[in-house]
Design a protein around this nucleic acid. Structure first.
Length: 115
DNA sequence: TGATTGACCAACT
DNA sequence: CAGTTGGCCAATC
């Protein structure tokens, strides 16, 4: 059964925000959650990512990692190493499932979804 | 309908 | 300093 995200759904806000992550940049679940407001939570962002595969839209979920810059969600990609490969392809350095210089490549959401 | 889980985070012990 | 717990909200069982 295909999941069709509603416009009012919190998921769609997450998708819209994640899609705005620039090339070669990454952000964290908590940052997205904090950006969307108190209605959101980091777990919901994770759930949204989990459902992002069902979404008809293309979500660069590989650019979303946890607060430590660790690729916690890599197992949910087609291949466990796919997420790392995608990030390395964008110029990032991954070591031990963790993004090196995560802070440098960190992209602070502009909270465009709320505006 | 109640209980459990989930790609997290922060506080507490 | 490492392990546990609570919280957030939605989806699944």
């Amino acid at each position: 059964m295909d999941y069709i995200p509603k416009n009012d759904s919190f998921f769609d806000l997450v998708y819209d925000l994640v899609k705005q992550i620039p090339y070669g940049r990454v952000t964290s679940y908590g940052a997205i959650a904090a950006c969307l407001g108190a209605k959101s939570s980091a777990r919901m962002v994770g759930w949204a990512m989990n459902n992002s595969h069902h979404a008809s839209k293309q979500i660069p979920a590989h650019r979303v990692v946890n607060r430590n810059g660790q690729l916690t969600g890599k197992a949910h990609f087609g291949h466990p190493d796919l997420m790392q490969s995608l990030l390395e392809n964008e110029g990032l350095i991954i070591e031990n499932d963790t993004i090196i210089d995560f802070k440098k490549h960190f992209w602070d959401p502009a909270c465009l979804a709320d505006q």
